[in-house]
Design a protein around this nucleic acid. Structure first.
Length: 356
DNA sequence: AATGGGTCCAACCGCAACGCA
DNA sequence: TTGCGTTGCGGTTGGACCCAT
């Protein structure tokens, strides 16, 4: 037996709202408020509408100070940054953009921003792929015998971006986890810089023994304090891992401080909710090759490419994003990751235009 | 002018979380 | 603790509009 419908669908009007309906709803709410019961509201004012429909109409259209269209560059950046950090949590993203509704932002992302980024990514990838191909051809023709890569494998070998010297030294094996981690940090930086962020080179990475987090060196809080300010930590009083308010407040405070940390610590709570996000990212140029998507590589672990030794702690699909920054992990690999992060750790992104 | 495809956005739907009795 | 009604959220859809052919 299914759930009882929230309203009598047969006697409920659907489709676009008329100006009369808008006027009725707006006048009533402005005078009496919602009364704490959306379901009863349409009956009170004689509207043949579902309560949910009234709520949506009010929140997305009639509510005062709603802005429609005309997203600024700044808003674009905020949306992109937050999307990359938390995925399609439109209500949380909307909370950072006064006057914008989650529906508006969702539509804007789906119809414009995504395509904008997609085009950007593809363009850059194509041009870089072209250069890479030229170099490959040059190399293979000049030193076929010396090539590390068998000639018949050339077509299968993805483009590997240049590695930081230290990473290359630490990770002589091309597919090592260290290499990916380091490259992931660089990738994240690149993407965020593209999106308008910038990094402070002297920011610190702290490992409190359980979780890694990044913060600027001008903060004097303790690790725990910082962690609670920077990422959402389910407290003993908060039983819900999806405490959106906490997350929202947390993100809000980051913006208040004009700082924006992309931190995997936020992400475990997104488990099981980001399949679309993941596929979108794949669509944005990432299919089987993590290096194909310049700037997005950090979102994927090598296990996405190489299935050897998949470990729940190491898996980095959006079902478990916790390893983006280096969560608690019992495996040696996890410890190694943390060590590498400490060694070469990437810093938070500071949002442009804010106080430092 | 007709039309077919693409784009955009308001609104709907279903599900999960929440709150209360 | 449980069950039910309500709310909030994210994904999807339908249709209006635009533009190229």
């Amino acid at each position: 037996m299914g759930r009882a419908p929230c309203c009598d669908k047969a006697n409920v009007k659907k489709g676009p709202w008329s100006p009369e309906e808008d006027t009725k709803l707006k006048a009533y709410i402005e005078q009496h408020g919602t009364g704490g019961n959306w379901i009863a509201l349409p009956h009170k004012i004689g509207l043949k509408r579902c309560g949910k429909s009234c709520r949506l109409r009010w929140l997305n259209y009639l509510r005062p100070n709603i802005k429609h269209g005309g997203f600024s560059e700044e808003e674009d950046k905020i949306i992109c940054s937050l999307y990359i950090s938390i995925g399609s949590r439109w209500s949380i993203i909307a909370a950072q953009l006064p006057g914008r509704t989650d529906n508006d932002i969702k539509n804007y992302w789906n119809t414009r921003l995504k395509k904008k980024l997609l085009g950007k990514q593809r363009k850059e990838h194509q041009s870089r792929r072209g250069n890479s191909l030229k170099q490959d051809m040059k190399r293979s023709s000049s030193s076929v015998g010396d090539s590390m890569v068998p000639a018949d494998n050339l077509n299968q070998i993805p483009y590997w971006p240049e590695l930081p010297v230290l990473a290359a030294a630490a990770a002589p094996i091309p597919h090592s986890s260290q290499e990916h981690r380091i490259d992931s940090q660089a990738s994240m930086r690149r993407l965020l810089i593209k999106l308008g962020g910038r990094f402070s080179e002297d920011d610190h990475v702290v490992n409190d023994g359980t979780t890694l987090h990044q913060f600027p060196n001008d903060l004097s809080t303790t690790d725990q304090d910082l962690y609670e300010q920077t990422v959402y930590v389910p407290s003993s009083s908060s039983s819900s891992p999806m405490d959106a308010l906490s997350l929202s407040n947390n993100i809000g405070s980051q913006f208040v401080n004009s700082q924006f940390a992309i931190d995997g610590g936020n992400l475990p709570m997104l488990q099981g909710q980001s399949t679309t996000f993941s596929s979108e990212l794949q669509e944005m140029g990432y299919s089987n090759n993590p290096q194909r998507l310049d700037g997005m590589e950090f979102l994927y672990g090598e296990d996405m490419v190489d299935n050897r030794g998949v470990n729940p702690c190491e898996s980095i699909g959006w079902g478990d994003t916790s390893s983006l920054v280096g969560p608690p992990c019992a495996s040696e690999y996890g410890v190694m990751q943390q060590g590498m992060l400490q060694e070469y750790g990437f810093s938070e992104m500071r949002y442009p235009g804010g106080a430092q």
